[in-house]
């Protein structure tokens, strides 16, 4: 017994030399997407960190893929950036072959395939895909790093997922809310744009207060269904002070869905 204990101890001393290369890193930050009836909001903060170090205050995590699809990535930044690059490559070949942009439904399935193809050396990335479905409804698809996915009304991922998702469950899915007998529980995914943007901003400002890895800047991409009025975004006073709206021109033929980039600052401490 004593002999055994001694050798076990020696093992413990010998083992530490195994100082192995870890190919992963967590770069913090948070992403969030909420679908409306005829729009979709996809948002992310712009901080990139490693442990206690803020690497940069501006690194994008949200990417416009097509005229009606936007992708947010979170997790290991290098994997995220390279995954988005690969997705965009595939979309370009698709467009060359078919003379049209890929639908959100197809992009979602393609992303599953691409993630699962690296099942045993995964992209350490949580993806949220938002945009407009072929039938004109707002859509959100969320993924885990190895490709499981589903369509939802909303999803938060990343460092502050545990702070934001319960809030969304309450505000979007109306969980733990009671409604009077004469007022039925609303169907999730039908809130007006102003309300949704308010929820997104509140989610991020709150997460910034309580999570060290969230902050610096907020980018919210808003994809509007074809023919939808946009004055609830662009008209004067539609948005709170300090929020800047910019329309991103179409990538393809145009004349259909419209995408806007809405920015504001977050606290930098």
């Amino acid at each position: 017994m004593a002999l055994f204990a001694a050798s076990a101890q020696q093992e413990a001393v010998a083992a530490p030399i195994q100082h192995r290369f870890d190919p992963y890193e967590d770069n913090g930050g948070t992403i969030l997407s909420i679908a409306g009836a005829d729009f979709s909001v996809i948002a992310g903060d712009t901080r990139q960190s490693q442990g206690y170090n803020i690497q940069t205050r501006y690194a994008r995590k949200v990417w416009q893929l097509t005229d009606k699809v936007v992708l947010a990535t979170n997790g290991f930044a290098a994997d995220g950036a390279n995954f988005v690059k690969k997705v965009k490559q595939r979309l370009e070949w698709y467009e060359n072959a078919h003379q049209k942009q890929m639908s959100i439904k197809s992009i979602a399935r393609m992303i599953q395939t691409m993630l699962y193809a690296k099942r045993f050396f995964p992209y350490y990335v949580y993806n949220i895909l938002g945009g407009i479905e072929e039938d004109g409804t707002g859509a959100v698809y969320s993924f885990d790093p190895v490709g499981s996915y589903e369509r939802e009304a909303c999803r938060a991922a990343g460092a502050a997922q545990s702070l934001i998702q319960p809030f969304l469950d309450n505000q979007i899915y109306f969980r733990n809310q009671t409604f009077p007998a004469d007022q039925p529980k609303p169907i999730p995914g039908n809130l007006p744009l102003g309300t949704v943007l308010g929820l997104v901003i509140d989610s991020f400002t709150s997460a910034t207060e309580r999570h060290i890895e969230v902050g610096d800047g907020l980018e919210m991409y808003v994809v509007m269904a074809k023919g939808r009025a946009v004055d609830d975004l662009t008209s004067k006073g539609a948005l709170p002070e300090g929020v800047v709206v910019e329309e991103l021109g179409p990538l393809g033929e145009g004349g259909g869905e419209r995408t806007f980039l809405v920015r504001r600052t977050l606290k930098r401490d």
Partner: peptide, 25 residues
């Protein structure tokens, strides 16, 4: 711009690697 052994990249107006990220940045 910064790039390291993991392929992590970022740009910023001031940058520092390693110990410098704590002391100089």
């Amino acid at each position: 711009g910064y790039v390291d052994l993991l392929g992590t990249t970022y740009t910023a107006p001031t940058l520092a690697t390693g110990f410098g990220a704590h002391i100089a940045q």
